[in-house]
Amino acid sequence: MTFSHSHLLGIEPLAPPEITTILDLAEQYVDLNRRDVKHADALAGLTQINMFFENSTRTQASFELAGKRLGADVMNMAMQASSIKKGETLIDTAMTLNAMHPDLLVVRHPHSGAVDLLSQKVNCAVLNAGDGRHEHPTQALLDALTIRRAKGRLHRLNIAICGDIAHSRVARSNILLLGKMENRVRLIGPPTLMPSGIAEFGVEVFDDMEEGLRDVDVVMMLRLQRERMDGGFIPSEREYYFRYGLDAEKLAHAKPDAIVMHPGPMNRGVEIDGEIADDINRSVIQDQVEMGVAVRMAAMDLLARNLRARPAEVMA
C-alpha cells in the first residue's frame, strides 16, 4: 500500500501510485456497499466531524454515509449558522475542535486555502471537501474511479472538461489528477470562464464546443456556478446553452461510446440537456454518486491507518 499522507487536502501532493491505492481500495468498498449488510469497522471508535462552511447536501451526505458505513461516530456541524457569524475565526474554531478530540475532520470552506490553514492547527486528519476555487480532491477521485470502471483504464484517454473552469475547484482537481495519470485533457468553455495562465497547465483549450468534443472518450460537464458569478461573465443563460450546453448534436462529435459526467447538482437546460443526463447508455452521473461514497470510505480508511500508525506523542 502506498499512501503516506496525514491529510487529504488536494490532488496536487498525491503521486500516481497513491491515487491508484485509493481507487483500488475504493473498489472493495463499492462491493461492500452493494451487499445486504453494508458495514465494516475500519473507523470503529473514531470520531468524524463534518464541518461545512458552505452549503452542501450531496457531498455532506456522502461523507456522512461513508463514515457511518465504516463504523465512525459522525457529527455534522453546520458552520454557516454558527459562531462564524459571531466573529469567531477559523483558528478559534480549530482550537475548539481540538478540545473535542476528533480523528477525522471533513471541511468545506468558501475560501481557497482555508482547509489547508485549518489542517495546520488541528491534531487530526483533515479531508478537503472543497475549498473556494482551489481543490475538491474526493470529487476528482470519484470521477477517476467512475472513468476507470467505465473505460477499463485511467490513462491515454481524451477527456473534455466543459463549462465554468474559472470558478471550479472540481475542474482544478480533475485537471491535476487526469494529468498525473497521463490522459489528454481538453478544456471547453467561453474565454471569460477560463482561469488565467491555463495554457501552462498542459491542457488543450477550446472555445468551440464541437471542435473540443471531437473524438473524446469522456465528457465532463461542470455546473454553471451562478452563485459565484460577479456578474457579466456570459451574456445570458440561453446563449450559454446554445453554445456550451451539452445536447445530442454536440455530443455526436465525441466518440460513439463516450461517457457523460456531471458532478451535480445539474442545471438542466443550462449546461446539459435533460435527455442526455438521463440516458443510461451515455450518462454515468448516478455511478458518480455511488463511487463518491466508496472513494470517501477509502480515503478516510487510509488516513485512519496513517493516524493509528503515528507515534502517540505527535497526537498529544
Binding site: 486555502g113 476555487r133 475547484r169 482544478r172 482561469p195 488565467s196 497547465f201
Partner: peptide
C-alpha cells in the same frame, strides 16, 4: 497576480 500560480491556488487575481 493572474497566471498559472493563482489559478492553481484558486485565488482571485489581477492582471
Amino acid at each position: 497576480t493572474s497566471g498559472k500560480f493563482a489559478s492553481l491556488r484558486g485565488l482571485p487575481s489581477v492582471s
